[in-house]
């Protein structure tokens, strides 16, 4: 088979592009430390009673993150038609300069959990616990910083109402058990 030399050149450049893309993503994982949502969060039977007994969700109190150690915190969120608990009723409060792990699950249908304007973004699937860890920087001022959270997967009539908020507060305004 005869392939034109320009086409051979383009074939080589195409391969270079593909390898470059995969290389960039690999750099993101190894160098920049970006992790994918995976099966680390484990599973839970999708009903309120079972979810509330799950160790991650049982320790969740009102809208505060739970302090683990150092600057590490955990928040357990139930995404359900059509609210986030916590998040929708009152904002989820996390302290600045923290490393927060969100555990999100659903007792009913598939939802999304997307912190608008950031790369914190996961699906919420009944039966599965999504686990994502994100780092919030130090605040520039004494004012809390707010992030919107939206459900980005269609979950039924009323889906467009499903949103919440995360509030990053200065260290001294943090009211959780430090």
């Amino acid at each position: 088979m005869e392939i034109h030399r320009y086409e051979k050149l383009w074939f080589g450049l195409s391969l270079l592009l593909i390898v470059g893309f995969i290389g960039t993503i690999t750099y993101g994982a190894v160098g920049a430390g970006v992790q994918m949502v995976s099966d680390d969060g484990g599973t839970v039977e999708p009903s309120f009673s079972t979810i509330n007994e799950n160790e991650k969700f049982a320790q969740q109190e009102d809208n505060q993150a739970v302090h683990v150690e150092g600057n590490e915190y955990e928040v357990a969120v139930i995404a359900q038609r059509f609210s986030f608990q916590p998040g929708t009723g009152s904002p989820i409060q996390v302290p600045e300069d923290s490393r927060v792990t969100f555990y999100v699950t659903s007792p009913d249908v598939i939802h999304g959990f997307s912190v608008v304007g950031t790369n914190a973004n996961t699906m919420v699937i009944p039966g599965q616990i999504a686990e994502i860890t994100v780092e919030f920087d130090e605040l520039d001022s004494d004012e809390p910083k707010e992030y919107g959270v939206v459900c980005h997967e269609f979950c039924g009539a009323g889906h467009e109402e499903m949103a919440g908020q995360i509030q990053v507060v200065p260290e001294d305004q943090w009211e959780g058990d430090a």
Binding site: P91, G112, S114, V116, G117, T118, E146, G148, V149, V150, C151, H152, E153, F154, H159, E160, A163, G164, Q165
Partner: peptide, 20 residues
């Protein structure tokens, strides 16, 4: 890129300000 979700009847929310 600004974070507006798909598959929704109304992408405006009280809690969300799209910027950037």
């Amino acid at each position: 890129l600004a974070g507006v979700p798909r598959r929704t009847a109304d992408p405006t929310y009280d809690q969300v300000i799209y910027d950037g």
